[in-house]
């Protein structure tokens, strides 16, 4: 009896689960499929689902016409650059807070988090004016700095929650075993901290890649990352859905794959360790 019910419920949930999954994934799947259609097939009515003339033309067109690669590299520079710089600044801070906490450590962490609460529009105008006056508008350096700053609290927090999980007894054991501070850092702390640093890196690259307030407001062409580049397709002069889809697929594919790998870290990273 119990077995029969189990199998039946498993079949039910398999159907329900896959329906939900496919429904939510559909817009992405549809974009992916459309990217291989001709422009005519893309707006055909009734729509073609699988049986259309598959072509790679859109991908070639996107690169040739709008220099996709240039914007892709901007995205890479800004997201990786901001994350790496952020890590370099945040690792010592998180380290100090996790391993030699004081009475004020908690307050400092809370305060850092509170900077995340500030809505971007509160800072948009002065930052825009400063960027304009200093010639930073539409520059990769400026965007990298801003994206680094908005993600810095998250980076510190993620690292802190990871570092805090390294048990103090292990560090004491290393000291009993005669490890000097340098050796303790090289042989014990770093190997134990690397997984945490890696997932922090991954999640923050994702966040930086998809950042779309500052990039849209502070870049137009030269330093425009993919967020801005894709937004330029919103102008209503004609329907280039296949090309839009090709550009979109290219823009989201790398980050989607990274996201799938980092799904576990996503939860604790975005909830600042409140949910694990």
């Amino acid at each position: 009896m119990a077995r029969a019910i189990n199998t039946r419920s498993k079949i039910t949930f398999t159907i329900v689960g896959w329906l939900c999954g496919l429904l939510l994934f559909f817009p992405i799947l549809w974009t992916f499929l459309t990217s291989f259609k001709t422009e005519g097939d893309a707006i055909a009515n009734p729509p073609y689902f699988l049986f259309f003339h598959w072509t790679l033309e859109n991908y070639i067109e996107v690169q040739a016409r709008s220099d996709y690669l240039h914007h892709f590299l901007n995205s890479v520079t800004i997201s990786v650059g901001s994350t790496v710089i952020g890590l370099i600044i945040a690792v010592p801070a998180a380290w100090a807070m996790a391993f030699s906490p004081t009475k004020h450590t908690k307050d400092v962490l809370m305060w850092m988090l509170s900077t995340k609460m500030m809505p971007a529009v509160g800072a948009l105008i002065p930052i825009y004016l400063i960027f304009r006056d200093w010639g930073l508008l539409d520059s990769r350096i400026g965007l990298t700095a801003i994206v680094m700053l908005i993600n810095l609290p998250i980076i510190v927090w993620m690292l802190y929650t990871y570092f805090r999980e390294i048990p103090g007894e292990i560090l004491e054991a290393a000291r009993m075993d005669g490890a000097s501070l340098a050796k303790e850092i090289i042989y014990v702390l770093t190997p134990m901290a690397v997984p945490g640093i890696a997932s922090t890196l991954l999640l923050n690259i994702i966040l930086a890649w998809n950042e779309a307030f500052w990039t849209l407001n502070l870049s137009t062409s030269k330093a425009a990352p993919l967020t801005t580049f894709i937004a330029s397709y919103s102008s209503p002069e004609g329907l280039f859905w296949a090309k839009l889809s090709a550009a979109s697929t290219l823009a989201i594919a790398p980050i989607l794959i990274m996201g799938w790998f980092s799904q576990k870290q996503l939860v604790r990273g975005l909830t600042f360790g409140a949910v694990k």
């Binding site: 817009p27 894709i230 989201i252 799938w260 996503l266």
Partner: peptide, 28 residues
């Protein structure tokens, strides 16, 4: 709940979160 292909469905479900806002807005 346990069901067949749970891992894959999980990946499908979380995918929209990784789509950049401008892309999802334009696609929709």
């Amino acid at each position: 709940q346990p069901f067949w292909g749970q891992g894959i469905v999980r990946l499908l479900v979380i995918a929209p979160f990784f789509v950049m806002p401008t892309v999802s807005a334009l696609v929709w």
